[in-house]
Simulated scan of single mutants.
Amino acid sequence: MKITGYRTLRTVHHWGRPVGDANGVVAGGSTEVPVLLVETDAGLTGVGLGAHAEAHRIFPAVEGHDPRAVTTLYDRMLAHTFKSGHAGSVFGTIGAFDMALWDLKAKMAGEPLWRTLGAADRFVPGYASGLDIGLDDDELVTLYTGWAERGFTGAKLKGGLDTDRDIRRLGAVAEVLRVNTRSPALMLDVNETWGRHQAVRLLARIEERIELAWIEEPVRRWDTAGNRAVGRSARTAVASGENLTGLEQFLPLLAADAVQVVQTGSVWGITHFLRTATLAHGHDLPVSPVGYEGNPVAHAAASVPNHLVTEVQDTGSPVGLTVDQVIADGGIVLGDAPGLGISVDEAALARLETAGWAEPAGPHVRPAVAGLRLVADAGRVGSPPRDGHPQRETAP
Rank of each mutant, 00 (worst) to 15 (best):
Ser383Thr: 13
Val33Trp: 10
Val369His: 15
Arg196Ala: 10
Val219Met: 03
Ser303Arg: 03
Thr181Gln: 08
Val230Gln: 08
Ser89Glu: 12
Val176Cys: 07
Trp194Gly: 06
Thr93Lys: 02
Val309Tyr: 07
Ile133Lys: 11
Ala148Arg: 12
Leu44Pro: 00
Gly171Phe: 03
Ala229Phe: 03
Gly64Val: 12
Thr4Leu: 10
Thr11Gly: 08
Thr31Leu: 15
Val141Pro: 02
Leu334Asp: 00
Met108Trp: 04
Ser266Met: 14
Gly134Tyr: 07
Val124Gln: 01
Leu131Gly: 13
Pro289Ser: 02
Gly50Trp: 11
Asp41Tyr: 07
Lys105Trp: 00
Asp189Leu: 06
Leu308Arg: 10
His14Leu: 05
Gln260Thr: 11
Arg115Asn: 00
Asp336Cys: 00
Arg17Tyr: 00
Met99Ser: 15
Ala277Leu: 06
Asp314Leu: 03
Ile210His: 11
Ile215Glu: 06
Asn227Ile: 03
Ala368Met: 05
Pro296Gln: 05
Gly146Cys: 01
Gly5Cys: 11
Asp103Ala: 03
Trp357Tyr: 11
Leu73Cys: 05
Val19His: 06
Gly316Trp: 06
Glu175Asp: 13
Glu393Pro: 04
Ala204Leu: 01
Arg373His: 02
Ile327His: 10
Gly43Lys: 09
Lys158Met: 14
Ser89Asp: 12
Lys105Glu: 02
Gly291Phe: 03
Gly154Asp: 09
Arg168Asp: 11
Leu143His: 13
Leu49Ile: 08
Ala69Tyr: 13
Ser288Trp: 08
Leu177Ala: 04
Arg196Gly: 06
Val326Glu: 15
Leu253Arg: 09
Val267Lys: 15
Gly95Lys: 10
Leu177Val: 06
His80Arg: 08
Leu374Pro: 00
Leu73Asp: 07
Lys156Cys: 03
Thr142Pro: 01
Val35Leu: 12
Glu175Leu: 00
Gln263Ile: 02
His13Ile: 01
Ser129Lys: 00
Ser89Cys: 02
Glu353Val: 12
Asp98Val: 12
Asp189Met: 06
Leu274Ile: 07
Arg209Asn: 11
Arg221Cys: 08
Gly5Ser: 14
Thr245Lys: 14
Phe123Asp: 02
Ala328Ser: 15
